[in-house]
């Protein structure tokens, strides 16, 4: 890694290819539905199980009728849903794509929401409500005008897409890597995804985290 904490376009390409090659072999049985690397874009499709608003509303009404109003005031859907014996769920397919930024010279995480069930907004509120774990919300909300997630036209497809603003990526990587070694472009991508992914419950299969065999020096 010549320019760590930045990554060059060529290194990014190598890293994505290595990431793809490694991950296809361990893909079975985890939540990564589909991974592809084509035309400088590493894409990952993941399905998210979400609670539908109709379910939430029914439960809310139910509780109100039983006079248990403090649960509603709490506005915590998790608590409300715990009362449900059979929670109704739905799914959203999220297509992540990782692109190299020519300005920042770091990877940028883009994503689009697909197959959004009717009655659920395709806007940023759905992202915060259903994709971002509660623990990550405050940190994401602190940055920028709309929080750490922005909306723009995807650089490759030109379709509307969300992206995580990359201006702090290099600095964060630098801090992390004082504790961890980052020798190869694959290391770099794994560490980067470990940094950005958890905000969306996007986790790296543990096999990718195992140390490389000794004879690879």
């Amino acid at each position: 890694m010549q320019h760590f904490p930045s990554i060059s376009k060529a290194e990014f390409h190598d890293g994505c290819q290595a990431f793809y090659d490694t991950i296809v072999s361990v893909l079975d049985g985890n939540s990564w539905l589909q991974v592809a690397y084509e035309s400088d874009v590493l894409s990952i499709k993941k399905e998210y199980i979400i609670k539908t608003p109709s379910t939430l509303n029914e439960k809310a009404t139910d509780i109100v009728q039983h006079g248990n109003e403090d649960l509603i005031d709490d506005e915590d859907h998790e608590i409300i849903c715990r009362h449900s014996s059979l929670p109704e769920t739905d799914r959203i397919l999220v297509e992540f794509s990782i692109l190299w930024s020519p300005s920042y010279q770091v990877p940028v995480l883009w994503f689009t929401l697909n197959r959004v069930p009717s009655g659920i907004s395709t806007g940023i509120e759905t992202v915060y409500q259903h994709l971002v774990p509660e623990t990550s919300r405050p940190a994401l909300n602190q940055v920028g005008v709309m929080g750490g997630i922005s909306i723009a036209h995807h650089p490759k497809s030109d379709l509307p897409a969300f992206f995580i603003h990359p201006c702090n990526t290099a600095e964060a990587l630098y801090e992390i890597c004082q504790q961890r070694s980052c020798r190869t472009a694959l290391d770099y991508l794994v560490i980067w995804l470990g940094l950005v992914g958890p905000s969306f419950n996007l986790y790296i299969p543990s096999q990718l985290l195992l140390p490389a065999p000794e004879d690879e020096v």
Partner: peptide, 12 residues
């Protein structure tokens, strides 16, 4: 959204 896009562009 427009404000956010402007600020992102300024940052870049």
């Amino acid at each position: 959204v427009l404000h956010d896009a402007f600020i992102n562009s300024v940052k870049e």
